[in-house]
Amino acid sequence: MNYSIVVLGAPFSSPSAITALNFTQALLTQGHTVFRVFFYHEGVHCANQLSTPQQDEINLTNQWQTLKKQHNLDLVVCIAAGVKRGVLDQSEANRHEKPCSNINDAFDLSGLGQLVEATEQSDRVVTFGP
């Protein structure tokens, strides 16, 4: 079955950020396909590559990046929700005259149309969070 995942919870604030990752891993292990993972609301913080948890804690950003490498996942961060919360790629950083970008390169900033498309293209859409 073809799934899309919506992540609304932030790492360290909500268990949903980890649950979404675990659920996605389980789907892929069982042979399902994942059309897109869409990060919205506080979920956009999952894409912040400056987040630096302690060694013995899970690093969600890296875990998503690894999963993307293994399964060629489409990881999309809502641009409005991301930029508002300080999750920027280089082009947004330039546009808003910020000193640096911080989005992990496994993730793409894009619009809410990507979430609409995900509901169009998927058999199931599962929301995690907030």
Binding site: L8, Y40, H41, A81, L112, G113, L115, V116, E117, T119
Partner: peptide
């Protein structure tokens, strides 16, 4: 209680723009 109510409306507007 959070910005989720606003962001939900933003999603609805996007969905409406795509004639969902």
């Amino acid at each position: 209680s959070s910005s989720l109510a606003r962001e939900a409306v933003d999603y609805c507007l996007a969905a409406a723009a795509f004639e969902q």
